[in-house]
Amino acid sequence: MSSAEIRITAEPIDTARCKFLVSEPVHEGGVRRFVSPEEANGSPLVEAIFAIPGADVSEVIVSGNLVTVVKRGAAPWQVVGKSVGGAIRAALAGARPAVAPKPAAPVAAGGVDDDTLYDRVAELFEAQVNPMVARHGGRVELIDVQDAVVMLRMAGGCQGCGMADVTLRQGIEAMLQQAVPEVKGIVDITDHTAGANPYFAAAKK
């Protein structure tokens, strides 16, 4: 497929975060998260995104067909998004993989590696989180843990729900803080616009 045939849909979450849905896989080796240009070395796509002038990119998350970019700069997504789109097309057209494979999980300073955290978070999700959201027809899938940051996807009644962020921050994140305090953060990679059966639908209020 030529770069011209690649379709990219930008889904801004707010002025700082934007998801880019790509018509072909960008990285098939699970989720990768980058929080500095140094970490991006060896991953041409991410190197290019961190180098976008004026964006002051602080984080890039790549998973399958999804690229999530977090920026600090004031430049609007309408401008930054074009550069991100160009970077994606150029990286997919290149000879090297757009994103390097995930390196072996390092042991965190507290002595807990991502694989161990993954197991503990997965257990928490199955034993406590999912039984709770199931009452509203929802489900939360653990995608990966990287550098002690949990990546998840919401489904069913949670996907597109007007209160999804409340569930995420006031419920799930709080439980993680208490049960797995080594977790440093949580990233929702759900495409909420595709939710067909949200438990709470928003109205103008």
């Binding site: 979450i13 707010d14 007007g162 209160m163 999804a164 962020d165 409340v166 921050r169 006031q170 709470f200 639908a201 928003a202 109205a203 103008k204 209020k205």
Partner: peptide, 13 residues
Amino acid sequence: LPTATYRATAFVE
């Protein structure tokens, strides 16, 4: 925050 709101994300964030 009423459950039928668009405003959750903006205020929570």
